[in-house]
Design a protein around this nucleic acid. Sequence first.
DNA 1: TGGTTCACG
DNA 2: GACGTACGTGAACCAG
Length: 928
Amino acid sequence: MSSKHLYLVDGSGYIFRAYHRLPPLTNRHGIPAGAVYGFTTMLWKLINELHQTDGPTHLAVILDASSKTFRNEMYDQYKAHRPPPPEDLVPQFPLIRDAVRAFSVPCIEELGLEADDIIACYAEAALAQDWQVTIVSSDKDLMQLIRPGLDLLDTMNNRRLGREHVLEKFGVEPEALGDVLALMGDSVDNVPGVPGIGPKTASQLIQQFGNLDAVLAGTDQITKPKLKQSLIDHADNARLSRELVRLKCDAPLPEPLDALELKGLPPEPLRAFLEDQGFKSLLAKVQGDGPATLPSGGPTMLALAPGAEEKPAPVIAQVPFNHKDYETVVDEAALDRWIAEGFACGRIAVDTETDNVDPVRANLVGVSLSTAPGKACYIPLAHIGDGLLSETPKQIAMDAALARLKPLLEAAHVLKIGQNIKYDMVVLSKYGIDVAPYDDTMLLSYDLDAGLGGHGMDELAQRHLDHACIEFKTVCGTGKSQISFDKVTLDRATEYAAEDADVTLRLWQLLKGRLAPEAATRVYELIDRPLVPVLAGMERAGIKVDREELARLSAEFSGEATRLEAAIHAEAGTPFTVGSPKQLGDILFDKMGLKGGRKGKTGVYSTDVTELERLASDGVAIARLVLDWRQLTKLRSTYTDALQQQINPATGRVHTCFSMAVAQTGRLSSTDPNLQNIPIRSDHGRRIRDAFVAEPGKVILSADYSQIELRLAAHMADVPALKDAFARGEDIHALTAQEVFGEVNRDTRARAKTINFSILYGISAWGLAGRLEVSREEAQGMIDRYFSRFPGINHYIAATLGQVRDQGYVSTLFGRKTHLPWIRSAKQGERQSAERQAINAPIQGTSADIIKRAMVRMNPALAAAGLGDVRMLLQVHDELVFELAPEQVEPASTVIRAVMAGAAEPIVQLSVPLGVEIGTGPSWGAAH
DNA sequence: TGGTTCACG
DNA sequence: GACGTACGTGAACCAG
């Protein structure tokens, strides 16, 4: 075997992938160059990576010279439906040839031949001389060439494709692949194939008969009548298709094989080319200046350039966990030693232990500290023993300990490191301590690894330190026998609490250094970290609810529900548990014999709102009754009853907890209670909002962004018609209705609204068809019209999908990443789900970034306007809720509107205005 | 505990 | 040609 190894790069595939992967960028001369940049990067990456393995000795890039080839003489419809290359791609072709030459690599094309044919010819010639051949492509036509000594390299997943791949994908040996391709045809290249035959059937037929001729000769053995007839009717098409997919491998070589020899990579021509185009980040990489750094001016391409994410995780020699080494601090001298140590280190991990998961209700029970891996202590402050046999253990007096800890926790030159430090801030603020400066390992993890797993401490310790933390429940128990932390013995408490601080410090050491190389500094420092004390303040503030009003609503909803239940039982002819989907399904579809299908793996009938609405519109009385019953019981159990329980007796208000590291996209979430899903859409529901009131002498002000996600989509996808409409303040759904349906009325506007949301969610024609209750074809037609009327959306989707497949994550305009590992799932459903998430996450996430920035700036802006006592209470994704004096409404509205509308700047300049709508009233409901 | 349903953006 | 039937959340309830 010769030691020579030829690499043939399918240049056309590279170009189109580069084009669709990158946004429309221009080079230093103002010429479109996104594809040039992408192509150059990919080629550099390829050569660089191959060089580090047992690399190629010969390499060439193969391009298509023209659109007309010998195949058009065989079949004039060949590739006839293929649209011409995009307008902004055409001027990039010559630049791409320049790029290849800059690498000192031959760039080969030949009139009348497609790149695939030239590749086949070179492959044939090289194999004849016993060379190894690798074709850099994932094109299925080229897979026909696979044989011993020849494989394909799919750079998208860095996979080698050989015989096994063809067998797995098409069920046949590579030699028989041409026959399969001929039967199935190719709608993109307009290879006719045989109608009704796709990859599955084609593969099955070839496996059964051996080859195409045998299939066509053996139709009498085929049992399915439709398939048999189609094969007989279109036998000629099948034979023609066989010739169209056959690669021509006997043409003379444009350059001799030896001319493809790789002579290293002379730096000068490449440097000159990159400099001329203004590809600075790539230039830096080529010159060995290390990985791409943060974006600095110029086009956005730096942020998209691959490379930085491929660093190996740093290996830190791990100090073992030994719980017996932790110190229980019970005298002031020992405490002073630890505090001095904290000042000396300049950073210290801190964790508080309390008697309640709700920080607003919690009392401080102890504090743990850590200054180095393995070195941690616990300072018990309010332990009371088990309350039965043991006595209250000896501890430092709370006041004395806090007086000593306060200077450390507030010292400007000592960094306090916490895991979910918002909790500790809320607790400590009740004791007059304002923790600052601070870092939060939960947020570090969230801003680096969103989408790769949870961000709780136990999970992070397992993932990064390979350490299983002592579980809270093994210390305090669970369920009825659970005890509060102040009843835990000091030695158990120390093991648990000090470990938390120890783990937090270790995690901080691992995660903090990743921020800059992984381009997460901006999101962490400018958005999430500064938001922590803002949210802590909102949680402490809480919002007043009118308990009596809630109780009245509960009683009213109860009464109505009881009446409805009786009516439902009467309709059903038997009493049953209306709240049981299983029993309801059996009553509706078995006993009453209504039409409806089984759903789900559990085999229960679906009785959800769409199903019941369908029945109700068919005049089924019980369906409407059940819907009304469900609404009332839902509102009562989830809201009017539960909220009364949630009122904090000490403050008379409800204090939600905002979670910063739960949502995959950067949004907040709200729990205990969830105040982000308080009803508003129904009349019954809206009355619940009226129970959220201002304290006497104050009013509620609600400010919400109007259609922020659609505006961001218009900006991010660069859609002129949508941007203009937003700039002029037009009704965007009406505009969409006009463009898609040609007229605006109630119905078309409602449908247009659905379509607009569908686009944000990355819907399929099937999904839209279901929502609008039209056929799949009609839905596809609407989507097509939408894409043609609003060009840019298409490109955004293609570029986003290319990006996520390439790098495994998508980013917001501010650089927040959402990792989507399922994008590489072998299961189609999981993959498609990840694709929809990829389309939505940058939009939803950018919106989340913007309102978070508004929140970070809000209190200082209000204070600067002399409105320091205006209180921000809630955030509901695109809405902020405030409590203020009536005379403050006017000046505060000005400040709030300005802060919210300008929240993206100066980091991001939007090409659409952000609209802010403000309302006020005695209650949250009235403020809308 | 998992499945179902439904409240919100 | 089969597949699936919109993105992101949290809470309550039923049934096993």
